[in-house]
């Protein structure tokens, strides 16, 4: 194992992380809500409870609106995934079902949960990091990529 220095972006990634932390901190300290994207998405779907729909909708508007600006100003910030359409659909289902069962993803468990010193979030993060790492290892072995 060696660090891929050509891809490593310490300054931008740390700065981006601070912004994500600021976003989560503002929502928690200001409104008492948890910036977890899987939960926000689930709470906006049909037949979700009406309680909490409003703030989630505003969060989504902010996230999508700013992403439009990013796509206009710095389109290279977005790259399309390399996976096949079938793999994308399977992966999307796994991410949706998995984060709903676990009640959180990289943001809700990773950023907010670890900051809250939640044992559930620590268990979740260790588990999904491990299963994601194994998945990349297995698929890279099969496709010869990476």
């Amino acid at each position: 194992m060696s660090v891929d220095l050509a891809s490593f972006t310490p300054a931008q990634s740390l700065a981006g992380g601070l912004l994500i932390g600021l976003a989560s901190a503002l929502l928690y300290a200001g409104a008492g809500r948890i910036a977890g994207i899987s939960g926000i998405c689930a709470g906006l779907l049909p037949r979700a409870p009406s309680e909490g729909r409003s703030w989630r909708a505003w969060f989504a508007v902010g996230l999508l609106g700013t992403s439009v600006l990013v796509a206009l100003v710095a389109p290279s910030a977005f790259t399309a995934p390399a996976a096949s359409l079938a793999a994308l659909v399977v992966a999307g289902l796994l991410v949706g079902v998995g984060t709903r069962l676990a009640n959180g993803c990289t943001s809700g468990h990773g950023v907010v949960g670890l900051s809250r010193l939640s044992p559930r979030s620590l268990a979740s993060v260790l588990t999904f990091m491990l299963s994601a790492g194994i998945t990349v290892l297995v698929t890279a072995h099969n496709t010869g990529a990476r």
Binding site: T99, A102, A123, T127, S131, A132, T135
Partner: peptide
């Protein structure tokens, strides 16, 4: 929690 996290990790890694 653990089952969900495993499934999420597989989708994320794919």
């Amino acid at each position: 929690l653990i089952l969900g996290s495993v499934l999420f990790g597989v989708g994320w890694g794919l």
